[in-house]
Amino acid sequence: MKILVTGFDPFGGEAINPAGEAVKGLPNEINGAEIHKLEIPTVFHKSAETIRQAVKDIQPDVVLAVGQAGGRYEVTPERVAINVDDARIPDNEGNQPIDVAIQEDGESAYFTKLPVKAMVAAMREAGIPAAVSNTAGTFVCNHIMYQVLYMIDKEFPEMTGGFVHVPFIPEQVTDKPGKPSMSLTDITKALEAGIKAIVEQAGKGDIKAVGGATH
């Protein structure tokens, strides 16, 4: 099995992106799967073009994109991506789409087929706070999750894909009182545990476990 894992470059005035750094720290093999790591730009559409080219070159079985969700306490595999860009801030090239469809011929939403509940269980077993998330936002993170699932729907039906959000790391919150953070070591550990679960659950679907939310 080949797994392409992507992480964004820094954005929003931050000097570092824990997603990109954690991806760089992953081993080249996890649970027998070959891990390919790629940094992608925090730019609408360009990020998707970068992944699409890598998919054509590598032909992975799985694409797992990783992004920063500053303010979250947990590592959060995402369940669903929606077909809208509504950027609160500009991306790294100044683009700020508002209420724009990501793909005019795409579904209103795509649900991942990755075993997000098994991933959360594996992360928690590794001692890392984790939870299923039901919103990937409307910035470049949701955009790239949607684009990956759109590619699977339209071009690469044998592939699976999804997205994981990670918290700030401590050095990012020195000027953000009250904001939670997680060590880069723990974020990388969580991603590795999640990827192990992806490999172990291949062809089996997800586990049955509580992962819903009341709001």
Rank of each mutant, 00 (worst) to 15 (best):
A33E: 02
P90K: 04
P170M: 10
T174V: 14
P177Q: 01
K24E: 11
K37W: 07
F8H: 10
D175R: 10
G12I: 01
F8W: 09
I198C: 08
Q147M: 13
E34A: 11
V140M: 11
P60N: 06
I207N: 14
K24I: 09
V164R: 05
Y73I: 10
T185D: 11
N17C: 07
Y150S: 03
Q59A: 13
I58D: 03
G12R: 06
I3E: 02
K208E: 15
V173Q: 05
K154E: 02
V66S: 09
V75G: 03
E78I: 02
A54W: 08
R124S: 00
L38M: 14
N142P: 09
L149E: 01
H45N: 06
I102D: 00
P77A: 04
K24G: 04
P157K: 03
P170N: 07
V120M: 07
Q53T: 14
A190V: 04
I16R: 14
A121M: 06
Y73K: 12
V55A: 00
N134L: 15
L114I: 15
P177R: 09
T42V: 12
L26F: 11
E155D: 14
T6F: 10
T112V: 13
R124K: 15
N92A: 07
I82H: 06
G137Q: 12
D99S: 13
T6P: 04
V120L: 10
I98L: 12
N28D: 15
Q172N: 10
F168K: 02
T188Q: 13
K204F: 02
E171K: 07
T185Y: 10
V100Y: 00
L38H: 09
P177G: 04
T160V: 09
P180K: 09
D86R: 00
Q53V: 10
P18Y: 08
Q59D: 09
K176M: 12
E158L: 09
D86M: 01
L191Q: 06
I195T: 04
I207C: 10
L38Y: 08
K179R: 14
L4F: 03
V62G: 07
G212L: 14
A65N: 11
A136G: 11
P18K: 10
D57F: 07
A19Y: 05
S47H: 00
G212E: 12
E21S: 13
H143M: 09
G137P: 15
D85R: 13
S108P: 05
A15K: 13
S108A: 15
G137F: 13
D105W: 06
A122N: 10
M1F: 06
M123H: 08
G194E: 07
G20A: 08
Q59V: 14
A87M: 05
N95I: 07
A121E: 15
A136K: 00
P170Q: 13
Q59Y: 06
S133C: 15
Q172S: 08
A65S: 11
F111K: 14
L184G: 01
K113M: 15
I187D: 02
V132S: 12
T188D: 08
F163L: 06
A54K: 06
D85T: 09
